[in-house]
């Protein structure tokens, strides 16, 4: 009996010391695990930081590429405009050169004419004036004045006025057609540098 009690005591003592051991082992493991965890967390944070930096760089790169694309588009548009202007380049009056200008003027006969001949004559006169106007527009240019009146977010009145003032001489009538009350006069003028040299 005594021995059994002794054994039991010894066992209990041994278990107690074993429990201490276990407890000490568990704390070290937890500490180690915590350290590993914090390390992993730090690595994750670093990875996140790296990822954020990479995203920012990607964004910048995207913006840069967009800017380059836009610049390319602008350059392309400018080039196309240059090509268009080069192809449809206006004639310039140079020394010892002349420019030939051809226009078509339109005129209408009034309603109250006494004869078809009168209608033709009047329509032709109107067409000549129109052709002169067209020549003046081409040679000297047009002054344009525009005005829009807006009230309560609505356009009340839209006005465009154009003016032409010029002196035209030596214009020739090339062809005249009269069809269904409309007279068309084709006129041409040859302008040389000497005409403007005074």
């Amino acid at each position: 009996m005594k021995y059994s009690i002794l054994i039991a005591m010894l066992l209990s003592i041994s278990t107690l010391s074993g429990a201490d051991k276990v407890q000490t082992v568990d704390a070290a493991a937890i500490e180690q695990t915590n350290a590993e965890l914090s390390k992993v967390r730090a690595e994750i944070a670093q990875a996140k930081l790296d990822a954020a930096q990479a995203t920012a760089q990607a964004c910048e790169a995207k913006k840069e590429s967009q800017r380059v694309v836009e610049e390319l588009a602008v350059a392309k548009a400018e080039k196309e405009e240059e090509i268009a202007t080069a192809t449809a380049k206006e004639e310039v009056l140079r020394k010892n050169k002349s420019v030939h200008i051809s226009v078509i003027g339109q005129g209408v006969a009034p309603m109250n004419t006494s004869s078809p001949a009168q209608a033709y004559a009047l329509a032709k006169r109107a067409a000549i004036a129109d052709a002169y106007r067209a020549i003046a527009e081409k040679v000297k240019g047009v002054r344009i004045d525009g005005q829009d009146t807006i009230k309560n977010m609505m356009v009340q009145r839209s006005t465009v006025r154009t003016y032409v003032q010029a002196m035209v001489r030596n214009a020739d009538i090339v062809e005249t057609t009269f069809k269904e009350g409309l007279c068309e006069v084709e006129m041409e003028i040859l302008i040389s540098h000497a005409d403007f040299a005074q």
């Binding site: 000549i128 004036a129 129109d130 002169y132 106007r133 020549i135 003046a136 527009e137 009145r157 839209s158 006005t159 465009v160 006025r161 154009t162 003016y163 032409v164 003032q165 010029a166 002196m167 035209v168 001489r169 030596n170 214009a171 009538i173």
Partner: peptide, 27 residues
Amino acid sequence: EYIHKLGMHVNHDEKTINLQNSYTTVL
């Protein structure tokens, strides 16, 4: 026609109000 050849002063005034056009040309 001879007078035209001598040279004419062209005075053109064109108005477009609410998309309706009218003009006067004086030679």
